[in-house]
Each structure stands twice: as structure tokens, then as C-alpha cells.
């Protein structure tokens, strides 16, 4: 049993890294634009399909295809932001938070359903990054998962470096703390919003491209990660990138252990999907600031 739990934890760790990549994107968008992006899961789905078509139509090898998928997800997000989110920055818009919720929710409905028409209903699977599996004693993990976790860690590391060490990152950070002060020191806040929404989308897209060979791609694949990412972002403290990385891994591992330890096996898998949602609800009720967050219970 102990061995089974250890193996389960390792599996959860890998999934947790992917969750963290998705959630980090959501966090960037939240901290700069002050909106919750309800279409984040759909950008993740689009990233998966971008990866697939870049490989199958342009013949680009799987690993470089991740970067192309990221770039395309970035462009798609920027286009959506330019077309639909600009009222968020206008002083005449009333109740901006409602606007943000409804518009991103509308984008999610639109993308999920247009995907069926564009990509067809059948699940598609891009080729593996590396075939075969890592076997150590009783522990088995496909190289695709190992690679996805490694790439996820690398992407998260780059993101932390980017936000902390570059002037771009510092500019974004400044805008996230105060729009007005950032404007005073000469930071172009409009550009910061566009960059942040694009960057967040690029991370969702990267996660989609990474899981492509692990799970098959379907138009509705974004629904589940979307709510999971909310749970992570809330647990990690809205707006904290480091917090959401830790929370992502925490949720991944505890979700795996939940299935392993759930007393009734005929229900364990079903309720696993509700697990992160329950965490989300409890955190919102008991500690709305999350584990590592600032106070953010109301948004102005």
C-alpha cells in the first residue's frame, strides 16, 4: 500500500506541474487585468489543437511545435483582448468585473463550439514526444509524461525569471500593484494588458500542446482544467504566480491520493472530479486570501 501511495504521489506530481502551467497563465491575467478568465480552458484546448495541426500539416517536429503552439495561442489571446476586452480600460464602463466575467464566458462558449466545427468531433492525438516508458521497479511512467513535467518545470522557471529579472516583468509587476503609479512612472499600461493576456494564453496553449500526446484532444477538454485552474489560483492566492505553482502541485498530488484512498472504488473516480471543486469552495469560504495570497476578496 505504501508503495502504491508513493507511485500515486509521483503521478500526481506530474499532473500537478501541468495544472500549475495552466494556473500560472490564469494568475498572470488576473493580476494584471483584474479579471477571471473563464475562457482559459478553451485557450488550453486551442493550444492542443494548434500543436496537432502544426505537426500534421506543416511537418514540424513535436518539440518545436510546442513553441509554435504557444506563439499561436499568444496571438489568438492578443486578438481576443484587442477585440473584446478594451472596454475594461475605459473609465465609462460600469461594473467592469461583470463585463469581464460575461465576455470571457461568452468567448468560452464560442470557442468550445466552433472547435467542433473546425476540428471535428473525433478525438485526435498528436505523435508522442518520446515513445516508451520509464520503468523503475514497479514504477512505470510514460516518457511523454516525464517530458511534459520537465518542460512544464522549465516553462515555470522561465516565467519566474521573466517576471522577476527583466524590465518587462517588472513593468508587469508594477501594473499589477497599481495601474496609476505604473502610468506615472511612464509604463504603457495598455501594452501591459495586451502582453499579460497574451502571455497567460501562451501558457495555457503550452499546457495544451504538452498534454496532447498524453490525453486525446477533444473540443470539450478545456472544461475540467478550467475549474481545476480556478481552484489552484484561489488556493495559491489570487495573483501570486509562486503561490499558484505550489498550489498546482499540491492539488495534483492530493487529487491522486484522494482516488487512491477513497473508500468506495466504484465512486472514487467520479468524485475525483469534484475534489478540486470542493477544495475551491472551502478555500473561498474559509480563507479567501488563499495560502499565500494578498487580500483580494473584492475587485475594484
Amino acid at each position: 500500500m505504501a508503495e502504491y501511495l508513493l507511485i500515486q504521489s509521483l503521478n500526481g506530481l506530474v499532473i500537478g506541474v501541468i495544472y500549475a502551467v495552466i494556473a500560472a497563465g490564469l494568475t498572470i491575467i488576473f493580476s494584471i487585468l483584474k479579471i477571471v478568465n473563464f475562457a482559459h480552458g478553451e485557450i488550453y484546448m486551442m493550444g492542443g489543437y494548434f500543436g496537432y495541426f502544426v505537426i500534421s500539416m506543416l511537418g514540424i517536429p513535436p518539440i518545436p511545435a510546442i513553441f509554435v503552439a504557444m506563439a499561436l495561442a499568444f496571438l489568438l489571446s492578443v486578438a481576443l483582448e484587442r477585440a473584446l476586452l478594451t472596454p475594461l480600460y475605459s473609465p465609462t464602463t460600469e461594473r467592469k468585473s461583470d463585463y469581464g466575467i460575461l465576455v470571457t464566458f461568452g468567448i468560452s462558449i464560442f470557442l468550445r463550439n466552433i472547435a467542433i466545427i473546425l476540428f471535428g468531433p473525433f478525438p485526435l492525438r498528436p505523435p508522442s514526444f518520446f515513445s516508451g516508458a520509464l520503468v523503475v521497479g514497479d514504477f512505470v511512467m510514460t516518457w511523454d509524461r516525464v517530458f511534459a513535467a520537465g518542460a512544464g518545470v522549465a516553462l515555470l522557471g522561465l516565467l519566474v525569471l521573466f517576471l522577476g529579472r527583466t524590465s518587462w516583468g517588472q513593468a508587469l509587476n508594477a501594473v499589477s500593484q497599481s495601474r496609476e503609479s505604473a502610468a506615472i512612472v511612464g509604463i504603457n499600461d495598455r501594452l501591459a494588458y495586451t502582453m499579460a493576456f497574451g502571455l497567460g494564453g501562451a501558457f495555457a496553449g503550452a499546457a495544451g500542446a504538452l498534454v496532447g500526446p498524453i490525453y486525446a484532444l477533444t473540443p470539450s477538454m478545456g472544461l475540467q482544467p478550467d475549474t481545476q485552474a480556478f481552484a489552484i489560483v484561489v488556493l495559491g492566492g489570487m495573483g501570486s504566480v509562486g503561490g499558484s505553482i505550489i498550489a498546482g502541485i499540491l492539488i495534483g498530488v492530493s487529487e491522486s491520493l484522494f482516488i487512491a484512498l477513497f473508500p468506495d472504488p466504484s465512486r472514487g473516480l467520479s468524485y475525483a472530479q469534484a475534489f478540486s471543486l470542493l477544495v475551491l469552495m472551502v478555500v473561498l469560504l474559509v480563507r479567501p486570501t488563499g495560502l499565500f495570497g494578498r487580500t483580494h476578496t473584492a475587485m475594484e
Partner: peptide, 22 residues
Amino acid sequence: YETADAEPTLTDFTAQILRFKS
């Protein structure tokens, strides 16, 4: 026989399969 159920939308069965395997 032993039984387990899963939601139709599930895509990761690793935990359950490992449980069966052990």
C-alpha cells in the same frame, strides 16, 4: 470480479489502473 465506475468525461485513469494492477 471487482467493479469501478467513472464519469464519461474522465481522461486520466492512472490511479484506478494502478489500483487494479496492485
